[in-house]
Design a protein around this nucleic acid. Structure first.
Lengths: 222, 222
DNA sequence: GGTTGTGAACAAATTCACAGCG
DNA sequence: CGCTGTGAATTTGTTCACAACC
């Protein structure tokens, strides 16, 4: 398939996984990788890797595999990682501070441009090297970092309001950590991460496993 | 459908969303809710709500809707939230401390039982009200909190090792924040949360949106 | 020989549409 | 009449299996 037909969502969600694996493989000195190897590293199966890569129109070499450096290049380009994207965090509370302090963002190419907070007492302070700005400063901050990503780390009660402000400031990518459903106009992408939700899902399966274990106490031949 | 056939994964992932919405609705004094309303609150569509609820075998009343309290009860039961589950965090670094400090876990019924860390200098210290334990203390800590959930907040390089230790200690639910694919024996559920991955996915769509915007500069009638 | 790229088969998830019931 | 519950239709995602190619 030749590059520009829309890439399935499920595939998009796996691209960063492949990229991460490829970077690791490159670090180990591999110059070439088969779909089988890449699948192993990314924790998926080989046909999936081949299908996914085929959506990017990337070319491997039959009988050989994919060129690691070339794939990294292609994939970074697809993911828009050539261009740096800053992150603006809304909410200087627990989670906001944690995220500002979290190296994972900066390390992987998403520097934190600032934190905005409604609490005047916090404005002007530094939180692990990141300045806290007033809500009124958001438009200016966003302008200074074109293509930046807004991160919602406020209580759920104000999440929608924050998203609206982000959108007004011209931000079109939002990562929402608040446990609340938010809406945004078309053209704005919102992704939701709810930490407690993940725990609840685990709890569901834990219940099933434990319940399941009750009956087959001593199964013959297992 | 009558309760015990396996609930589809996609449905399981939405149950906490419904529960959250139901709690909000109950808080507003609603005693009854239609699939349409619940769908609105949870940000999905009504048929999905009905299908999902039907997997739980929950009964609504035709012409009326669902009883809010009853649904909350049923859903909490399904999610195993009657029983409290503690969380044990591995890694007292940036992210680990942030998570320990994050009220979102405790507030929603997942108290943090402790942090384990390989660094002897940190052992015995308190991190926002949570004690740091040595790795050797893990089995005991896990025993003291049956059905607990292990959270990996270490560097990727040791994530697999940590998961192995969790499993040895009898933990069968793991939430992995390290950007690395980990494997675990059958019967152990692992969920992956990669914060930078979310940003990369946003970056992908941002690129598409921006590229798309290049051409229709001034669209008539929009 | 080995590995990709991809149609075709299969499976999962979503949406439609309406019968059934309060 | 209004709303649920669910089969059927559709869409999306995964896996298979193999021809094409290096």
């Amino acid at each position: 398939m030749s590059a520009r037909g829309s890439v399935p969502e499920a595939t998009v969600a796996r691209l960063p996984l492949y990229l991460r694996s490829l970077l690791a493989l490159a670090g180990e000195g591999n110059t070439t990788v088969s779909s089988e190897q890449l699948a192993g590293a990314a924790g998926v199966n080989a046909s999936k890797v081949r299908k996914d890569l085929s959506y990017l129109g990337s070319y491997g070499t039959r009988g050989v595999g994919y060129d690691v450096e070339y794939l990294i290049f292609e994939m970074s380009r697809e993911l828009g990682l050539a261009r740096e994207r800053s992150v603006i965090i809304a909410g200087a509370g627990n989670l906001g501070q944690a995220l500002a302090n979290y190296n994972g963002f900066t390390d992987r190419g998403f520097p934190v441009a600032g934190i905005i907070d409604a609490d005047e007492a916090k404005v002007g302070k530094m939180v692990s090297g990141v300045r806290v700005y007033a809500v009124a400063d958001l438009p200016q901050l966003a302008d200074g970092h074109p293509g930046c990503i807004g991160v919602v780390a406020t209580p759920a009660s104000v999440a929608q309001e924050v998203v609206d402000r982000f959108v007004e400031a011209g931000i079109s990518s939002v990562l929402n950590f608040a446990p609340s459903v938010v809406s945004a106009p078309k053209g704005v992408t919102v992704r939701q991460v709810d930490l407690a939700l993940e725990l609840q899902v685990l709890s569901f399966y834990a219940g099933r496993n434990e319940a399941g274990r009750k009956i087959p106490r001593r199964v013959i031949g297992n």
